[in-house]
């Protein structure tokens, strides 16, 4: 190649550094670059005056003359969000529960909002998918202690079960029978429950347990053992068990009794719109009637 410095006025300016014979030109930066640099400094000064910037004390930074704070911005965003949802919240409370599903926008609002609320408040006991756990009902199946209609689910969420803080709460208790019944009577009635739920059982004992059941259990569980949604007494004849359907667990239930508690969500801080959202969501999970 031809030499570069043919036409240049003086010798080529280099930084004086040399790596394997490669030298570095020392060309001046363009002046506009310098102006840009000064511009960023001026911008920085203005910014620190306008916005919170200098951490001068443990209390926090200089507030800035615009009075901006990210917390206030978040607050404003939340308020904006609430304002935007307000018409929907008012509407979901105003309409009939059964009418929610007919309004696609309202149904969408209920389902999405209900899902978020469920994950926050309900999933701890009922599971994130609503599948429940021992002692906590599965909300996906088709047996309901207190009814699976939208109205019944709504009432259960609103007032809870056995919640002493709410006088309208649903109350239900399986008494402990070990002091009321003889051990043989308990054994017989366990065999009877195994029989009516279609499981392996001792036929003679089950026969004897029928009378025990009729005298003591039928008041709540019904003469046929199919339960009663008025009193929250479970159906003992199907495949669904709250605490377990094996012989040992049934015996444990009969001897010691059961008393599950669900909080009253109207007393725990959910408003009516939120309760309706959760009810709609739970109803849509698969078990709703």
């Amino acid at each position: 190649m031809r030499k570069k410095d043919d036409k240049q006025k003086g010798p080529v300016e280099t930084t004086g550094h040399s790596w394997d014979g490669i030298e570095e030109f020392n060309n001046p930066l363009p002046r506009w670059w310098l102006w840009t640099f000064y511009g960023t400094i001026i911008w920085g000064i203005i910014y620190t005056i306008l916005y919170p910037a200098w951490p001068i004390s443990t209390e926090g930074a200089t507030p800035g003359v615009l009075g901006y704070s990210s917390r206030a911005e978040l607050q404003a965003e939340m308020e904006k969000f609430d304002t935007r949802l307000k018409p929907l919240k008012e509407k979901i409370v105003a309409v009939d529960l059964a009418a929610i599903k007919d309004d696609p926008q309202l149904a969408d609002f209920a389902r999405r909002g209900g899902k978020a609320l469920f994950a926050t408040w309900c999933a701890q006991c009922h599971g994130s998918g609503g599948q429940g756990a021992k002692g906590y009902p599965n909300l996906l199946d088709d047996e309901w202690l207190w009814g699976g209609t939208l109205d019944a689910i709504h009432t259960t969420i609103r007032h809870g079960v056995n919640d002493e803080h709410d006088e309208d709460t649903r109350t239900s208790e399986m008494p402990a029978w070990k002091d009321q019944l003889e051990p043989t009577e308990i054994e017989n009635v366990v065999q009877y429950v195994l029989k009516i739920s279609g499981q392996e059982h001792d036929a003679a004992r089950a026969e004897a347990g029928a009378t025990v059941f009729a005298d003591n259990c039928a008041a709540c569980h019904g003469e046929d053992g199919k339960g009663d949604q008025e009193t929250g007494a479970p159906d003992l004849t199907n495949a669904i068990w709250l605490y377990g359907g094996d012989e040992a667990t049934i015996r444990e239930t009969v001897e010691n009794g059961r008393k599950g508690v669900m909080p009253s969500w109207s007393k725990r801080g959910l408003d009516e719109a939120e309760i309706r959202q959760v009810a709609f969501y739970v109803h849509s999970l698969g078990g709703g009637q």
Partner: peptide
């Protein structure tokens, strides 16, 4: 497929997937 839970047992013993 809803995998939480894998399936649901219904009262009549049938199995439902979602």
């Amino acid at each position: 497929a809803v995998r939480n839970p894998l399936y649901v047992t219904l009262a009549d013993g049938s199995i439902r997937n979602t």
